[in-house]
Write a protein that binds this DNA or RNA. Structure first.
Lengths: 331, 331
DNA sequence: TTGTATGCGTTATCAT
DNA sequence: ATGATAACGCATACAA
C-alpha cells in the first residue's frame, strides 16, 4: 500500500493537518516541524494522492490531447511541442490517438470527462458539433470548426494555397493540379483549396482537383498518384501535405518524370523532420511551434475564465514558403 | 458544475445507491428503475467521476508511458501501437515525453505516482536504477535494464548487429564501420555493437567504431558524418538507427560517393514510415507491433500479480533484414 | 504554531 | 429491490 498522509503524520509525530500545511506551504509552521515532516516524506517516498486532492475541488492539471495519429510527422511535432509547453506550465498530458475512428474519439471524450481534465485540445475531428458542445469543458480546436463556442487555432490555410500556386506559377508551371484529402464542409483546410482556386483564376488557368483519401493505405495512394501522373498533363502539383508530396516525387521517379524539369511539386506542413530528411521538397511551412504555443495560451485563458465570452473565434498564423529543388525554375 | 451521482439520483427519484448499482451493474434492480436512471444520466450527460471512484480503491486504468521523443518515427510507431493495445484493454495513456532530461523524467515519474497510474511502460532512461526501484509500481522497460525487478522487452539486438554485418559482407563490403550512439553500460542496445564486433571477428575483419550523439542536432550529425566519410575507407556502414543511416546516405550523395557501389549502408528499426518514404534503405527491422503487444501483456501480468516473482526477466523478439538498394551487391 | 472535524463523489456494507 | 451511511485520502474551517 502506498503511504498516505496519516502515515507521514505518524512517522513525523504530528497531525495530518500539519503535514498538509507543509506540503502546500500554507499557514504557519515552525522550521523544526517542517524538517521533521520532510524527513518523514522522504523516508516513505511519499507522493500526495492527486486524485484525493482533485476530489476536494483542486484542479487536476490534466489536459487531454485528441489527435488522429502521432505517426504522422506533423502531428508528432505538434503534439510534442504542445506537450512541452503544457509541461512547463505545470500540466500533464493525456494522449488520445483517436485515428479516424468516431467511436474511439467518443470513448476518449468520455474518458477525459471522467478523469476531470482541466481542458482539451482537439485535433481529430470525427465527431459532430453537438457532441463537442455537450462536453461543457474548456476546449480549443486545431484547424477545425467544432462549434460556435470553441476557438480555432490554425495556420493561414488560404494564404498557403495561394502561395503554393504562386510559387509553382513563378517557377514556370501552367497546368497546376491540386492533390489532397477529400474536403469536408466548413473546415479551415478547405481554405487551402479556396486559395488554390482563386489564385489560379487570377492567372487565367483552369483548375484540376484530385483527391486521395488520407486514411487510404500509402501503397494504394502511390498507385492512384501514378495513374494520375500518367493520365494528366500536369506540370505542377499543389499537395495538401508533405507525405502526399513525397509520394508524388516517388511516383514521378518511377515513371521517369523529371522533377522539377517536367513537374514541379509543393508540399504542405514543413515539419523539421521532412525538411531534414527530404531536402529536395519545397513546401508551405506551418509555424508548428507558434501553433502549439497559441493553442496552449488560448486553452489556459479558457480554463481561467470558462464563462468569459470568446474574445476571438479564430486565430490564423502565417505560413512561409520553403524553396527547395522540387519547385526550382527549369530554363 | 458537472452533474454528480446525487443529481442523477434526484432526477430519477431514487437513491444514490441505486444509481451506483445501475452504473456498475451490481446487485438487484428492476428494469423500470434501471430505465429511469439511464434516462436521467442521458439527460444530464452524466459521467462518473473516476477520481472519486479510484479514491475508493478502484484502479484508475491509467498507464504512464515514458519515452524520449515521439518525433522519432520509431518511438512514434511504438507509442501508437502501445496506445492502441492499451486502449483495447480498457486502459488510457498518460504520455510523458521525457526527452533526454533527467529532471523531467523524475518529475514525470512523481506525477504518475501522484495520479495513481496502474503501471508504467518506460522507454526513456535518463534515471538511475534506484529511482525506478523506489517507485513501487508495476513497470516494464523497453530496451533497457532499469533494475533487477523490472522486466525488459526488446528486439534481439545482438542478432541485429550480426545480421547487419553479414548482409554487408555478403554484399561485398570489407571495411565495415559501426556508427551509433555512444553506448552506455549494460543496455540491450550495446548488444548491437557486440553482434557487430563478434561477427567481424569471424570474418577476420577489423572493427571501426564511431559514435554520433543521439541528442546532437541533425545538421551537426550530418557534418560529422561527412567528415567520417571523407577520412575513412569504409565501404560498409552499420548504423544503429534508420535516421542516422539516412544522414549517411545524404552525406554520401553530397560527397558524390555512390551507394551501393562504393558504400553500402544498413539502418536499424525499420519503421513503416521509413520503409515507405525511403525505399532505398536496407535495414534491420524491429517487430514494433509485437514489441508493443508484449510490453502490454507483461505489464498487465505485473498489474494483476504485482508480488509474483518475475517469470522471465528479458523478452527478446526476433529481427529481420529488409533488403533494399543501399546494400545491393555491386559487381 | 498545531490539532479536530467535516466534506469532496463514489462504492460497499448493512439494513429495510 | 432499494435506501442510509461509512470509508477512500486529502484540504480546510474552526478550535485550541
Amino acid at each position: 500500500m502506498r503511504p498516505k498522509l496519516t502515515d507521514v503524520a505518524k512517522k513525523a509525530g504530528v497531525s495530518v493537518t500539519t503535514v498538509s500545511r507543509v506540503i502546500n506551504d500554507y499557514g504557519y509552521i515552525s522550521q523544526k516541524t517542517r524538517d521533521k515532516v520532510f524527513a518523514a516524506m522522504e523516508e516513505l517516498n511519499y507522493q500526495p494522492n492527486s486524485l484525493a486532492r482533485s476530489l476536494h475541488g483542486k484542479s487536476t492539471n490534466l489536459v487531454g490531447l485528441i489527435f488522429p495519429a502521432i505517426t504522422n510527422p506533423f502531428f508528432a511535432e505538434l503534439v510534442e511541442k504542445i506537450e512541452q509547453k503544457l509541461f512547463s506550465e505545470g500540466y500533464k498530458v493525456i494522449l488520445c490517438n483517436a485515428g479516424s475512428d468516431k467511436e474511439k474519439e467518443r470513448e476518449y471524450l468520455k474518458m477525459l470527462l471522467a478523469n476531470q481534465v482541466d481542458g482539451i485540445i482537439a485535433g481529430a475531428h470525427n465527431l459532430g458539433i453537438d457532441e463537442y458542445n455537450r462536453v461543457g469543458l474548456p476546449i480549443v480546436s486545431f484547424d477545425r470548426k467544432l462549434s460556435e463556442q470553441i476557438p480555432i487555432v490554425s495556420c493561414d490555410n488560404y494564404a498557403g494555397g495561394k502561395l503554393a500556386v504562386q510559387e509553382l506559377y513563378n517557377a514556370g508551371a501552367r497546368h497546376i493540379y491540386f492533390l489532397g484529402n477529400p474536403h469536408q464542409q466548413g473546415n479551415p483546410t478547405d481554405q487551402r483549396l479556396a486559395g488554390y482556386c482563386d489564385t489560379l483564376e487570377t492567372y487565367g488557368l483552369s483548375r484540376h482537383i484530385h483527391t486521395v483519401s488520407f486514411s487510404e493505405s500509402p501503397s494504394l495512394k502511390l498507385f492512384s498518384i501514378k495513374r494520375l501522373l500518367q493520365e494528366s498533363v500536369a506540370d505542377g502539383i499543389v499537395c495538401t501535405d508533405d507525405l502526399t508530396a513525397l509520394l508524388v516525387l516517388q511516383a514521378a521517379k518511377e515513371l521517369a518524370i523529371k522533377v522539377p524539369e517536367q513537374l514541379k511539386v509543393t508540399g504542405f506542413d514543413g515539419t523539421t523532420q521532412i525538411q531534414l530528411y527530404h531536402p529536395e521538397l519545397s513546401t508551405i511551412v506551418q509555424p508548428i511551434s507558434d501553433i502549439a504555443e497559441l493553442l496552449v495560451e488560448v486553452l489556459k485563458a479558457r480554463i481561467k475564465q470558462p464563462t468569459e465570452p470568446l474574445k476571438q473565434m479564430q486565430y490564423k498564423l502565417p505560413v512561409t514558403f520553403l524553396q527547395r529543388n522540387s519547385t526550382s525554375r527549369s530554363n
